[in-house]
């Protein structure tokens, strides 16, 4: 074991860890923005309306993330039509290809988590809202969605952590995320054990960071459930 090799390459590994964190956060936020409307539409009473989110979720959950990222990066780049389009400045960059693939992937899983949570909101609460004279939109905004977010939170934190690990696939399309950086360092030092160990520790630290963030959100959303303390 050459421990010094970790220390020598730590700045680069941290650089990679930062890119990993960025990929997860950006695609997480974009994914959530897609997932919420997708989940709402998925709960529609009309089968024809439900069909689109169903196909979308089915496709992205049914294919490996590696295949999706290769399709976006190498697949789209093959067609001259895409290369001449307005989208090429975005699609020519590995960074945005990774963000696109991760966003679609995580939005499908998140939409399904939210769909389950929306359906788990007790019927009585919805009926109570109606009885108070709230319309459909207000009921969704004030009762169903806030309740559903709270129910979905533990499962959603799982999805974000899975996304963090999935982000290692960014290294296959030339990005120097934590895994890509580790592999590039190993290519020079031939010390896979030391460098992958260090990368593993950094992944664990990022996981703690994400879990900490979720705990804060959870405390805030469930603050009405905590016993009241005196003034």
């Amino acid at each position: 074991m050459r421990w010094s090799v970790i220390l020598e390459n730590l700045p680069q590994l941290l650089h990679g860890a930062w890119l990993t964190l960025e990929l997860v956060l950006v695609s997480g936020v974009l994914g959530l923005a897609i997932a919420v409307p997708m989940a709402i539409v998925r709960c529609s009473r009309f089968a024809s309306v439900r069909a689109f989110p169903w196909v979308y979720i089915y496709f992205f959950r049914g294919t490996p993330l590696l295949v999706q990222i290769f399709l976006v990066y190498y697949g789209l780049g093959q067609s001259p039509w895409v290369r001449d389009s307005l989208l090429w400045p975005v699609l020519s960059q590995a960074y945005w290809c990774a963000i696109i693939a991760f966003t679609f992937n995580t939005s499908a899983y998140t939409a399904e988590i939210l769909r389950g949570a929306i359906q788990a909101v007790p019927e009585g609460e919805v009926e109570a809202a109606r009885a108070l004279g709230m319309g459909r939109v207000v009921t969704w905004r004030r009762i169903v969605l806030p309740r559903a977010f709270r129910i979905a939170l533990p499962a959603y934190s799982n999805e974000v952590i899975l996304m963090l690990k999935g982000s290692a696939l960014a290294s296959t399309i030339t990005l120097l995320d934590l895994t890509g950086m580790a592999r590039t360092i190993i290519a020079r030092t031939y010390t896979p054990l030391e460098i992958f160990l260090a990368a593993g520790v950094l992944y664990v630290l990022i996981t703690f960071l994400i879990l900490g963030g979720f705990r804060l959100v959870e405390r805030r959303l469930n603050r009405h459930l905590r016993p009241r303390t005196g003034h």
């Binding site: 190498y74 780049g77 020519s92 590995a94 590039t184």
Partner: peptide, 18 residues
Amino acid sequence: IKRYDTQENAFLDLASGR
């Protein structure tokens, strides 16, 4: 410098103009 897992992927990306 862009680093690829295989030489084939590097050729593929040269062909795509990246």
